[in-house]
Amino acid sequence: MNVGLQHYLIVSGLLFSIGLLGVVIRRNLIVIFMSLELMLNAANLSLVAFSRYNSNLDGQVMVFFTITVAAAEVAVGLALIVALYRKRQTAHVEDLTTLKF
């Protein structure tokens, strides 16, 4: 049995699901954020796998961009969390119910 594209995609999908699970069940904003990173990485993995098996380096360029954007996103996101914490003294989604009518 040869390891092929399918295996990588399954791993990527499972990792994505784990990230999704984290986003849904965890209540700490920072952990939710980490779960988001997991999902991003899962997507990256499938991009690299496609790039490898389709003989096209563009996929890897895309991953490079994703990593960069993710870095920027983490910076901004964490800054938001810090600002929020200053205002509300909490980083829990349950305490953030401004949207409730």
């Binding site: 993995l45 796998a49 490898r52 890897q60 990593i67 983490v74 964490l78």
Partner: peptide
């Protein structure tokens, strides 16, 4: 896994940017 996929540069970046910079930020 990236190394296994022969994406050596990305593997390096992954460790540098994520495990290094991003996680430090976290």
């Amino acid at each position: 896994l990236y190394v296994l996929l022969h994406a050596f540069f990305l593997a390096a970046i992954q460790v540098l940017v994520y495990a290094g910079a991003v996680m430090v930020l976290f």
